[in-house]
């Protein structure tokens, strides 16, 4: 059925960064990172699932006020392996996929809920997308900008697909997880006005240039809308009825 799941079982880093493995891809991805002695890993608040006892946690405000506005938790926790290497297990909130990139003095933009963990060499900041790009995309006004040198992990709801863009590529706005800095993007309509209203695609993000885009196969919002009819209907005067 799928050789992907098997080969993805344990991916060990060949990059200069920390040793890690990602298990359970793509449905229930779980990240285990080995933090070298006296080094520090930044992890999204509440994502830590397991860790060695000599790992010390500190809560830091990272990303500034922007992260508040983005709806993302304001806090990133720092985990330091005191005295010797330590292992930490990280489980992101939604069931889905995890990806790793090693940044060599590069910049990657993440959709605001995608951040999972990074090493200290990676600078995390929120970036205003501008009204047109943010507002019309119906998604978020902010992106997370990750720059510098080091490991970066991010997650999604649904599986991640990595696309090499060379030229022009269209992605449904909600499905964007991350993209590299070299890409120019604009939020546009697809097709004519008829397509805008009836295609079910509406506005899309059109990337241009050379770089990489990561997309997710599922959307939390779509799942939530699907669940809606299954809510009980509360009638006035009577208690509940289905």
């Amino acid at each position: 059925m799928s050789e992907q799941q098997n080969q993805q079982q344990t991916a060990t880093a060949e990059q200069p960064g920390y040793a890690f493995k990602i298990e359970g891809r793509p449905d229930y991805s779980f990240l285990t990172v080995t933090i070298p002695a006296n080094e520090t890993l930044k992890v999204e608040a509440s994502a830590m699932a397991t860790m060695d006892t000599h790992i010390n946690m500190k809560t830091k405000m990272k990303g500034g006020l922007g992260r508040w506005v983005t709806g993302e938790s304001l806090f990133i926790n720092e985990f330091t392996a005191e005295g010797g290497p330590g292992e930490i297990g990280i489980a992101p909130g939604p069931p889905g996929d995890l990806s790793h990139v090693y940044l060599h003095n590069e910049v990657i933009f993440l959709q605001n809920s995608a951040y999972v963990a990074s090493t200290l060499g990676v600078e995390i900041e929120t970036k205003w997308q501008g009204l047109k790009k943010g507002f019309f995309s119906g998604e978020n006004l902010f992106l997370i900008r990750c720059s510098g040198d080091g490991d970066l992990w991010f997650n999604t709801y649904g599986a991640i697909i990595e696309i090499e863009v060379n030229g022009d590529y269209v992605v449904d706005t909600g499905h964007i997880v991350a993209f590299t800095e070299g890409l120019d993007y604009e939020v546009t309509m697809l097709g004519g006005y008829k397509s805008l209203f009836f295609s079910g695609e509406g506005v899309v993000c059109r990337f241009n240039g050379k770089g990489k885009v990561w997309i997710q196969t599922r959307l939390v919002d779509a799942m939530v809308s699907w669940v809606y009819p299954f809510r009980r209907v509360q009638k006035k005067n009577t208690t509940t009825s289905s």
């Binding site: 697909i161 696309i163 030229g167 022009d168 590529y169 269209v170 992605v171 449904d172 499905h175 697809l190 097709g191 004519g192 008829k194 397509s195 009836f198 295609s199 079910g200 695609e201 059109r206 990337f207 241009n208 885009v213 997309i215 196969t217």
Partner: peptide, 17 residues
């Protein structure tokens, strides 16, 4: 394709609804 099924595509593909 069913409306709404496309999540990404090459930029030069045309679409009519």
């Amino acid at each position: 394709a069913e409306a709404g099924a496309m999540i990404a595509m090459s930029g030069d593909i045309g679409i009519t609804t």
